[in-house]
Amino acid sequence: MNRDSYDSMLAAVRAFHEKHDFKGRGGEEMTYRLALMAEELGEIAECVTKGKGTENLAEEVADLYILLLGTAIAAGFDLKQAFWDKMAKLESRTGRMVNGRIRVSEFRE
């Protein structure tokens, strides 16, 4: 299996969960995972707002990605399929400038 493939990354996170018994020790509880993701978003925001550099930003985004993969494992859904389903929805939407920046949304009037 290609080390850089989604399936390899998912398998690595699954092995990490099993190694540390996340399922049996509370690591797959959704409220806990949400708090961890919020913490990582805060660290990403700090990298951006305090100019901590691309290397630090990449590490924090990788942490969030690992948490997202782990959340898919814990909740039992196929993140790859969810990604493609959402991309299909997004591609059907139009973009609009909002406060000087592009926004692609459903734009409920």
Rank of each mutant, 00 (worst) to 15 (best):
V48A: 10
F22T: 02
D63I: 00
L79P: 01
A82G: 09
T31V: 15
D63Q: 00
Q81G: 10
A72L: 04
L57R: 05
Q81C: 08
T54L: 07
D85G: 06
V13Y: 04
A45L: 14
G76W: 01
A58W: 01
L64K: 01
M30W: 15
V61F: 11
D7N: 14
A45S: 13
R33L: 05
F22P: 00
M37S: 03
V48M: 08
R33K: 07
A62K: 02
G24F: 11
A38R: 10
L68C: 10
M87T: 07
I73T: 09
A15F: 00
E60L: 00
Q81Y: 03
G42N: 07
M9H: 15
E39Q: 10
Y32R: 10
S8W: 10
A38V: 11
D63W: 00
R33D: 00
L64N: 04
L67N: 05
E28N: 08
A74Q: 00
E18K: 06
N56Q: 10
L64V: 00
E91K: 15
E46C: 06
Y6L: 02
V13Q: 09
G27C: 06
L34C: 07
A72S: 14
M30D: 10
L57P: 01
A74L: 01
S8N: 13
Y32A: 11
L57S: 03
K19C: 05
V48L: 15
W84Q: 07
D63T: 00
G42I: 01
K86H: 03
A11N: 06
L68W: 02
E28H: 05
M87G: 02
E40C: 00
Y6H: 05
L68V: 05
F83M: 09
D85R: 15
G24M: 03
D78W: 07
M30C: 14
F83E: 13
L10R: 13
T49D: 04
S92R: 14
K89Y: 07
M9E: 15
D85N: 15
A75K: 13
L90P: 04
E60T: 05
Q81N: 09
E18Q: 12
V61E: 11
E39I: 08
K86D: 00
L69V: 12
A12W: 05
G51C: 04
D78P: 04
L41M: 09
Y65A: 15
E40H: 00
K23L: 13
F16D: 10
Y6Q: 01
I73V: 12
G42W: 06
H17W: 12
L64P: 03
F16T: 08
D85E: 14
A15Q: 03
Y6K: 03
D85Q: 14
A12C: 12
T54F: 02
G76D: 14
F77Q: 06
D7C: 07
Q81P: 03
F77K: 13
L57A: 04
G76C: 09
G70L: 03
Y65E: 05
I66R: 13
A11R: 11
A58V: 07
